[in-house]
């Protein structure tokens, strides 16, 4: 909020420093240290990637569930075919995509407006509102299941994707506001002032100055909203009820598990189908995500 904040965009700063660091590091590179570090990295990679690998491995193995082998004993794509046709995961993916994108769009828009208010204006109750935003994130979902179920029923939106989007927007909003607030605050006030000096209205300034500068933050919050909607389980389970055609991937997988609980090849194929798109997306946007967290959660 203060105008003395350094004019540094977080992304730029994280991008530059490693170079300087690596120069320093090379001066004290002892073989033992390197070896120890190598072992640590190897262990870390095993821990993070083994579940992913095991999921892929089983999903590609016709023998999955009969023999456990560290590579597909009998490679096949049958599990995938089965899951996408009879398993109905094509529909589940479509539903999840619609719900997630809807959630992202609406929650980002609302969060951006609100974050500008709390980051750019000093007004009565500002602290209370920030407190509120933080506190509502703490509410356990289980506490909301029953009343939200009744609420959504009263809106006649049970068993619909729209009903889910409405709920997920509410779930994603507080974190979105919290994170974007940092981004908006990091935009130098001088730029706004310059726009006013050029005779721009507040709305014009918002679109042409503020919005482009907080775009990386929007990407980061969008990812979070997307993940919230993609992964959410308990509301989807209670609110979609019997509407199988509207199932999202998370409860589609549970329902699939209910029938094919011993067909691990197929369960892992379904899991892969759900996970891989998000995974690729995450790896592609990881720098943006990191910078989003830096500005949002970490205030310099």
């Amino acid at each position: 909020m203060s105008t003395t904040r350094p004019l540094v965009r977080p992304e730029v700063s994280t991008g530059r420093r490693p170079l300087r660091r690596s120069g320093r590091r090379s001066s004290r590179r002892s073989p033992l240290r390197q070896l120890g570090k190598g072992v640590l990295v190897a262990l870390l990679l095993v821990f993070t990637l083994f579940p992913v690998y095991w999921m892929l491995n089983s999903s590609l193995d016709a023998q999955a569930g009969h023999t456990s082998s560290f590579w597909p004993a009998e490679p096949t794509l049958d599990h995938y075919v089965f899951v996408l046709t009879e398993g109905g995961f094509g529909t589940f993916l479509r539903n999840s995509l619609l719900v997630a994108l809807g959630t992202v769009l609406i929650s980002s828009a609302l969060a951006l407006l609100a974050s500008v208010a709390v980051a750019r204006f000093r007004f009565r109750m500002r602290t209370q509102i920030l407190m509120l935003v933080l506190i509502v994130q703490m509410v356990p979902l289980e506490a909301l299941v029953i009343p939200l179920f009744v609420q959504v029923r009263d809106l006649q939106l049970l068993e619909t994707l729209t009903g889910l989007i409405v709920v997920y927007v509410a779930l994603a909003l507080p974190f979105g506001i919290w994170m974007l607030r940092g981004f908006v605050a990091a935009v130098p006030v001088e730029l706004e002032e310059a726009a006013y000096l050029d005779g721009a209205s507040w709305g014009r300034m918002f679109w042409s100055v503020l919005l482009p500068l907080v775009a990386p933050g929007l990407v980061a919050t969008s990812i979070f909203s997307f993940i919230t909607a993609w992964n959410e389980f308990i509301f989807a389970m209670t609110m979609l009820g019997g509407a199988t055609e509207n199932y999202t991937v998370a409860i589609g997988l549970r329902s699939f598990f209910g029938v094919h609980s011993n067909d691990w090849g197929a369960i892992m194929a379904a899991s892969t189908i759900i996970t891989v798109p998000v995974m690729i997306f995450f790896i592609l946007v990881q720098r943006r995500l990191a910078s989003g967290l830096t500005a949002g959660a970490v205030k310099e």
């Binding site: 619609l98 719900v99 994108l101 809807g102 939106l157 049970l158 068993e159 619909t160 994707l161 729209t162 009903g163 989007i165 509407a243 509207n246």
Partner: peptide, 8 residues
């Protein structure tokens, strides 16, 4: 999404 939502 909004278009297909109402079909319970």
């Amino acid at each position: 999404a909004c278009g297909s939502g109402g079909g319970g």
